[in-house]
Every structure is written in structure tokens, then in C-alpha cells.
């Protein structure tokens, strides 16, 4: 089936299979920053933004992308790079497999344009599993990043 959608601010027209998932479509388009994890919506590593909202790309049918907008970490490079600095400063990064999914959820939080307390940040991060860091260092880094704390 033919679909037309916006991918990282560029219009794309491609053919997809009826049961092709967004994650597989993105890999076909060489966007390997979108990771494959559990493949059943449980781990968060395949998160992308669909119309600026985080969704699990492993379980979203690509045929439903018509006239919609998808953002991967390649589409938010400046923000992702800034966030990476905060992650580095807090030691919030080990294997890095979960980072691109988390970066997109953090980007979605930032787009809310309002101060977010710790509980709200945790709420947004629920569903992102990280097997390395224990979450506290990530949480500190994300709070500092959202607060624009340059002292980190």
C-alpha cells in the first residue's frame, strides 16, 4: 500500500506491507537509531514521535501513517546532543541502547513548555526500561536538562 507521511520534516511516499510495523519501515529507511527491543510495546527502546507524541514503533502499523508526521532522534539532533551532554555529566549513559527512545520522550516533555516536577517526569519515562543505569542518574540529567541548569 502506498503511504505519504512526513519523516523528520521531509515528505516521504513509500510502499508498505499491510502488517508492516513502523519500526520495520524505519529500518528499511536506514534509521537504525530506532532500536528493536521486546517488540511487544514493553521496553520503550523503539519509541518515536508520531505527531509529536511518543509511540511504540514496534506496534504501530505503517499503513496508518498517511498524512502524519514521524520524528526519530535524527530529527531532533541538536536537542539530542544537548541531552547527551547532561547524560554524560551525570553518568547516565552506559550501553546507550535505550537513549534514543528516552531522548524522544524527553523532547516531547520539553515541547509541553511548562515546568515539570519529578513525578511528571517519572510518569513520562514510565515504559522506558534501562538495564544499566538504575534510572536515578538519568532522572537527574533529564531534570537538569529540562530546567536548563547549565552547571551540570
Amino acid at each position: 500500500m502506498k503511504i505519504e507521511f512526513t519523516l523528520n520534516n521531509a515528505l516521504k511516499t513509500i510502499e508498505v506491507e499491510p502488517d508492516e510495523m513502523l519500526l520495520d519501515t524505519l529500518h528499511r529507511l536506514n534509521l537504525y537509531s530506532v532500536r528493536r527491543g521486546c517488540d511487544t510495546t514493553s521496553c520503550g527502546v523503539c519509541t518515536v514521535l508520531l505527531d509529536d507524541k511518543p509511540v511504540p514503533s514496534c506496534s504501530f502499523l505503517s499503513v496508518r501513517l498517511d498524512n502524519r508526521s514521524v520524528t526519530t532522534v535524527e530529527g531532533i539532533q541538536e536537542d539530542a546532543s544537548d541531552l547527551a551532554d547532561y547524560f554524560g555529566s551525570e553518568g547516565a549513559d552506559q550501553c546507550g541502547y535505550c537513549n534514543s527512545g528516552i531522548a524522544l520522550s524527553v523532547h516531547a516533555m520539553k515541547q509541553l513548555n511548562k515546568p515539570l516536577d519529578e513525578e511528571t517526569i517519572k510518569h513520562y519515562l514510565t515504559g522506558h526500561l534501562c538495564r544499566c543505569t538504575g534510572y536515578q542518574s538519568q532522572l537527574k540529567a533529564i531534570k537538569a536538562y529540562l530546567d536548563g541548569d547549565k552547571h551540570v
Binding site: V55, P56, S59, F60, S105, T126, G127
Partner: peptide, 12 residues
């Protein structure tokens, strides 16, 4: 609802 897995899943 807010206890059902993560924000991303609940968006679909």
C-alpha cells in the same frame, strides 16, 4: 489508565 504500561503505549 495511568497504570497501564507507559505513555507511549497509551498514545496508541
Amino acid at each position: 489508565i495511568n497504570q497501564i504500561m507507559g505513555v507511549a503505549l497509551r498514545n496508541i
